[in-house]
Design a protein around this nucleic acid. Structure first.
Lengths: 202, 202
DNA sequence: AATTGTTTTAATCAATTGTTTTAATCAAAT
DNA sequence: ATTTGATTAAAACAATTGATTAAAACAATT
């Protein structure tokens, strides 16, 4: 009963602090204080800081990439619609979790191999209806022969980077958090149009 | 003589490790070993880890943003040319320093205020010929009334994010480092065309 | 030759930090 | 009423880590 509860309270506190400060920047006493539990209880539940971190990281990565498969493998939607759904989904996720992208990116830069095994993204993307439709678009002449890596980079860059760089954007433009939030919402509509228009350039 | 030399050897080692692992992820003994000097010497030169870190961070930020002013304030170039020069410059810088962008971004997320004071970017950008030309473009009808923040986000995203996310791109696409390097070079030409084409969308 | 600043060696300090332990308390279930 | 698992309190351990010290060696200058 209260077992599961406390476990989640600790995990919630750990998630926030880990996502904000990273593994090395997080102290176990800090987590215990934030969760308002005794330090001993943290180890009682999770054995060690590293094991707790691994759980948080895995769950974060899963919740970030989980929604990908249903969108990419949907046979009812075309390429254009899939792009819109992807952009909407990720702007929503990242708006609700401002440190999430940075957290995952930093982990990825430190442990790229661990990540690859954790998620079978390679297969997910390659075998998806999305990839199929993209290849068809290229052979059908609708998509130019720009390397697909550019396409992937552009889509992820336009969607994710504004969240990663938001403190810099804030400083340079002086925009408030609310203002930036509205801008992000606008981008749900704009990014699909932009990546579409970029395809006709080479 | 050997004074300046050793100082720079330590700084070089510190720069690499700090940029890769961050402040908390870096140990002074690690820097000393990498610089092949005694731990005592590190404190002899820089007094403390934090002071050394601050120097590295300041120099990194300066070298990253220093080239901005001459490009943005050049009266001989038009807006289009400035974009090309910016993109070229930053792809060159980031190609040579793969961890640089991530390093600055993480610092910015932790200490946004310190950053603002360190560099007068606000003034640099606002008073630049660039800003002037952008405003003229808007009033002249060449640039639509999309919020300029979008423009800033798009330019920085397309240019910087591929370097930040390169490990993920590697895993997903299976592309080699050389391949990604070539892709980045291609983007010097493509990004200016893309941001141009995006302006005609709304 | 003497001086001066640089560097090493080795040891140590004090604080932090992840983890463990022990005893006690509390709440719920049996 | 007793047992059981959850939780706290307090202390302590061992390892890490940033920083300091003292003495000696070294290199270049004067």
């Amino acid at each position: 009963m209260s077992e599961k509860d406390t476990e989640n309270i600790i995990k919630e506190a750990a998630r926030k602090i880990f996502q904000k400060n990273g593994f090395d920047g997080t102290k176990t006493r800090q987590i215990a204080e934030a969760a308002d539990i005794n330090l001993a209880l943290l180890n009682y539940y999770f054995r060690s800081k590293k094991k707790l971190y691994d759980i948080i990281m895995l769950e974060t990565i899963q919740s970030f990439f989980s929604g990908l498969i249903p969108i990419l493998s949907n046979r009812q939607t075309n390429l254009k619609q899939k792009i819109s759904l992807l952009v909407e989904r990720y702007i929503d996720i990242l708006s609700a979790n401002p440190d999430m992208a940075n957290f995952i990116i930093n982990e990825l830069r430190q442990n790229p191999k661990d990540f690859a095994t954790k998620i079978g993204i390679l297969e997910i993307v390659k075998n998806s209806v999305f990839a199929h439709q993209y290849v068809q678009g290229v052979s059908g002449g609708h998509i130019p022969k720009i390397h697909p890596i550019h396409y992937l980079m552009n889509l992820t860059s336009l969607t994710v980077f504004p969240f990663v760089s938001s403190p810099m954007i804030s400083i340079i433009t002086g925009a408030s958090d609310e203002m930036l939030g509205e801008i992000m919402q606008e981008r749900k509509r704009l990014i699909p149009l932009w990546v579409e228009s970029m395809l006709s350039v080479q």
